[in-house]
Amino acid sequence: MIKIKNISRHYQMGPNTVKAIDDLTLNIAEGEFVSIVGPSGSGKSTLMNIIGCLDSPSSGKYTLAGEEVAGLSRNRLAGIRNKYIGFVFQSFNLLGRESAVENVELPLIYAGIPPKERRVRAMEILKRVELDGREFHQPNELSGGQRQRVAIARALAVNPKILLADEPTGALDTKTGAQIMALFRELQSEGVTLIMVTHDPDVASQAKRIVQVRDGKILVDVPVEEWNR
């Protein structure tokens, strides 16, 4: 599903070149549930942005679902994001003026789905994340866990190959966080590929595979059983 080969990502900070990602290689198969862990500044966010096609590597190859995406134009990347990737953010990133169902419809608008079909699909997905009855509430009328479930529904709306979650439980209490993780495991069992960035070891160990990043390189890449030992 994801084939990353020898990618680097450099930033120019004044006179210095910062290597956020340094010659990194990573493969993730379809249906995997992977946690990317590491301290802040380790390059895990940059890696996440590259996997999510929000950013392009300075060098190296990145093949997503058989398509070479390194070096594509902004517009092509937008299309790839829309088609293959669902994002879940720490701070939910819902549009505050729009209702839950309208938020879920957003990626469907950019996928060119007609309004009636959008509504039907968005309603089904909200039901899937157990938010039926809350479809027409605005985000500020929902609890944190409910908001994150709206965000997950939105990420799932276009049937993406990959769900990318950036600290999905970071803004939630433990109990709600556990519910979200349960939902992720369910989704994985249905065949969705899940990649989650977190610095919380408890949350990370909910995945099946742990990738630890430091200084833009992969330090450890092991199944969760080994990690726990």
Partner: peptide, 15 residues
């Protein structure tokens, strides 16, 4: 931020 969200969800520059 709204623009960022829309772009992440697949909005092109032209959108």
């Amino acid at each position: 931020r709204e623009i960022g969200i829309r772009m992440a969800l697949g909005a092109k520059s032209s959108d």
